[in-house]
């Protein structure tokens, strides 16, 4: 509650929060099929129809309604983004905590593997994984999840190492507290703030990566809609039907703007040094 109120009081947080809320609503409608038209029905006579009262954002080469496809695509892209970030958060937190807590050899092994993963550009690594595993929604989730795991591992490991050296952890050891108690109560609980910020920002990257994969034909498979796929389809029609490119492009841009604004706001709000200003 306190955080929600703080987001509302924060300039860019308000804008970012509003954008994200609107997108969530659209995504839910898109996933439930509550769109103006069926996103995969082809209205042959209305091929490449410009935006009008019937087709708010026009139709594509096959006469499918762009607005409906956009809604379904946002639903699809958000699903992939949420699951892949959830995967990355979970894996990254576990690996980061393990590296920090166990230290020594574990730390070395985990972090070197993460360094190797980080050495690849995000989209290239995702492409590699999808190529090996075959395209599809759930392989993109896993691929994008793996790509962002090292970032979460680093975000968790650094603060966890410094928390581990704090006196309250020493104090817990003097009581004889178990490792699992210390890790969950003293480390994880104090990592909630940086993780929240990271999750918000990672959602933006994941959306972008999903769009990239679909654009290259390795993410969502046609006829299902996805933002990247729609952009890809619009490539050859840029001059004749610019709406095919403009709407999905804007949709991607605004969603990423929204998540970034929200992430920045959360970073300000959850920073302990700023705590008093927003409390």
């Amino acid at each position: 509650m306190r955080i929600l109120r703080a987001i509302f009081g924060h300039g860019s947080g308000r804008i970012g929060g509003a954008i994200v809320c609107v997108y969530l609503l659209i995504a839910v409608l898109g996933l439930l099929g509550l769109t103006p038209h069926n996103p995969i029905t082809q209205y042959r006579i209305d091929r490449l129809h410009a935006p009008s009262a019937t087709y708010w954002m026009g139709t594509d080469l096959f006469g499918r309604d762009v607005a409906s496809r956009l809604m379904a695509g946002i639903g699809q892209s958000f699903t992939v983004a949420f699951f892949s970030v959830a995967f990355a958060t979970l894996a990254g937190t576990v690996l980061g905590l393990a590296a920090a807590w166990l230290g020594r050899r574990w730390d070395g092994v985990v972090m070197r593997v993460m360094d190797v993963l980080l050495a690849f550009p995000a989209i290239l690594l995702a492409l590699l994984i999808v190529t090996v595993a075959g395209p599809g929604t759930w392989t993109s989730v896993v691929a994008i999840g793996i790509v962002y795991t090292p970032i979460f591992t680093r975000v968790v490991r650094g603060p966890a190492l410094s928390l581990k050296a704090r006196e309250f952890v020493d104090a817990a050891r003097t009581f004889g507290s178990s490792s699992s108690y210390i890790v969950t109560r003293h480390l994880l609980l104090n990592l909630v703030a940086p993780l929240t910020v990271q999750v918000t920002l990672a959602l933006a990257w994941a959306l972008l990566t999903e769009a990239g994969l679909s654009f290259l034909g390795l993410g969502t498979q046609p006829p299902a809609a996805s933002l990247g796929l729609m952009l890809s389809d619009s490539r050859n029609l840029m001059e004749t039907a610019p709406w095919l490119m403009i709407f999905p492009g804007l949709a991607i841009m605004i969603s990423i703007l929204g998540f970034n604004l929200l992430g920045d706001a959360l970073r300000d709000i959850l920073d302990p040094r700023m705590r008093r200003a927003f409390a």
Binding site: R166, F168, F175, R185, L189
Partner: peptide, 21 residues
Amino acid sequence: YASLNPRLTIESILAEPVIAA
């Protein structure tokens, strides 16, 4: 300032040695 976990209530802090035992 460093020896109390800032994210726990006083009750949880006082309970810790008991739980540990």
